[in-house]
Write a protein that binds this DNA or RNA. Structure first.
Lengths: 109, 109
DNA sequence: TACCGGTACCTAGTTCTACTATGTAGTGGT
DNA sequence: ACCACTACATAGTAGAACTAGGTACCGGTA
């Protein structure tokens, strides 16, 4: 993946995944697939799993294990109240940053 | 500073500084001040200087030392051709990422 | 039976960037 | 002599994404 994109994803990928979980539970492999479909074609699987471990430890999601028809059991993640709060803060932070940056772009800077 | 903002700045702060340098050379202390004026009130001075060292080593800027009326001599940074190229890539990467994220926001996700 | 592709999860070690905390210097004013 | 402001510098820390593997379960096929 481009080095720029890698660095830019720091701090945003977590928000992206939380947003994906809004209103719809999902498991790791599924999230990876969704990210790929949405254009993030080169996000490594390991990156997603590490992130999921992190947000689980931070208490932003609830986890349930469900047997799969094919392959090992899935770990299904659901956004909880604290996760929604975190996602809200993410949108605030994002709005501020993207506002500033778009300003710079407009100024031809 | 918020932890979220800190992480989100990784990968974007460099682009922001390159954008600030477009069409107008500047020195470190000045850049720090400009960032503060534009709302990034809590960006540490040391962060800016470290970043400037990095982009100089990457060859994105030209540097000239100029005596100051007050205080030690200034190191004035000017965006060069390679820097403009890098900034261009930054805008591309940013456009893609912000496009995806705005899409997620619209979906109420 | 043996193998392979697809599904699904996991982790140790590396790299990069921003922050913390502190230090050094030059100038002008009291 | 001291202080405030200007101006630059850096060693050490933390956090997040990547690399590069590995484990495990299932179905189909040779």
């Amino acid at each position: 993946m481009g080095k720029q994109m890698t660095e830019m994803l720091k701090g945003t990928l977590e928000g992206i995944v939380l947003a994906l979980l809004t209103g719809k539970a999902a498991y790791g492999y599924e999230i990876t697939t969704q990210l790929r479909e949405q254009g993030f074609t080169e996000i490594a699987e390991g990156t997603v799993y590490a992130l999921l471990v992190r947000i689980e430890q931070k208490g932003l999601v609830d986890v349930e294990k469900r047997p799969s028809e094919k392959g090992p059991p899935r770990k299904v993640y659901t956004l909880n109240t604290q996760g929604e709060k975190e996602l809200n803060e993410f949108w605030n932070t994002w709005s501020f940053l993207s506002g500033r940056i778009e300003e710079l772009r407009k100024e031809g800077k």
